[in-house]
């Protein structure tokens, strides 16, 4: 049963929701439906990976050796850390700890930047030896007629993932600005919650990319 008086006291509750709780649950379900489309969006690339790997098993073993397991592992730990800090940011919002909320968000942004910097060094070291996607591939270190295939898939998958990291940074910068202005309280922190869900999905996708691209030996 809706408590009309309590509802009217909370300005953030839109008129078509019974209460704050229902509004947050609806937002979360909406975000989950978006994440479903994200899973299928990346899913298409995973299908390409599976089809080409089934056709060229040797090529994938040979190509993955070119990637640095150390850098990939460091990036995995960096993303796990960023998932922890954004989960702590949500917790801080729920507990009304506003200063802590923006601090955790900033740490998450910094970890996301560390991820991108490492990715930048990985990409440029590959570009330097002619490992480029598709027809631009000129590297001769892999003795296989389909040598460019693995790296075309690698650049598409990590590139799309990196784009998601950049978008995530943009969203979190927006959250910091709003958090500093005092927009988020224990009663209303929906944007923090749904951005955290998005960020965890970015982490989830990397959890699969890491063993599939770096660890086949």
């Amino acid at each position: 049963m809706a408590n009309q008086n309590a509802t009217h006291g909370e300005s953030h509750v839109a008129h078509h929701f019974v209460d704050s709780e229902q509004q947050l649950d609806s937002s979360k379900l909406g975000m989950w439906l978006f994440l479903v489309t994200e899973v299928l969006f990346f899913g298409g690339l995973f299908v390409a990976y599976i089809v080409y790997r089934a056709w060229n098993p040797e090529l994938f073993y040979m190509s993955a050796k070119e990637l640095s397991t150390t850098l990939g592992a460091i990036n995995t730990v960096v993303l796990i850390g960023s998932s922890l800090t954004i989960a702590l940011a949500v917790r801080a919002a729920q507990l009304n700890q506003r200063a802590l909320l923006s601090r955790y968000l900033i740490v998450t942004i910094l970890l996301a930047c560390v991820f991108l910097v490492i990715k930048y060094f990985e990409y440029t070291s590959k570009f330097a030896v002619g490992i480029l996607p598709g027809e631009f591939y000129t590297y001769e270190g892999i003795d296989h007629p389909g040598a460019p295939i693995f790296f075309s898939i690698y650049y598409m998958m990590t590139g799309l993932h990196g784009l998601h990291v950049i978008i995530g940074i943009g969203l979190m910068v927006y959250l910091v600005v709003k958090a500093r202005a005092g927009t988020y309280t224990a009663a209303y922190y929906t944007p923090v919650e749904v951005t955290a869900l998005y960020w965890h999905l970015v982490d989830l996708i990397w959890i699969f990319l890491f063993p599939l691209l770096y660890l086949i030996e």
Binding site: W32, L35, V36, V39, L40, G43, G44, V47, V51
Partner: peptide
């Protein structure tokens, strides 16, 4: 449920393609 359904449809996409 939403997450599990996305995995179900992902598996169908893999299966039919393979």
């Amino acid at each position: 449920m939403a997450l599990l359904f996305s995995l179900l449809f992902f598996i169908i996409m893999i299966g039919i393609t393979l």
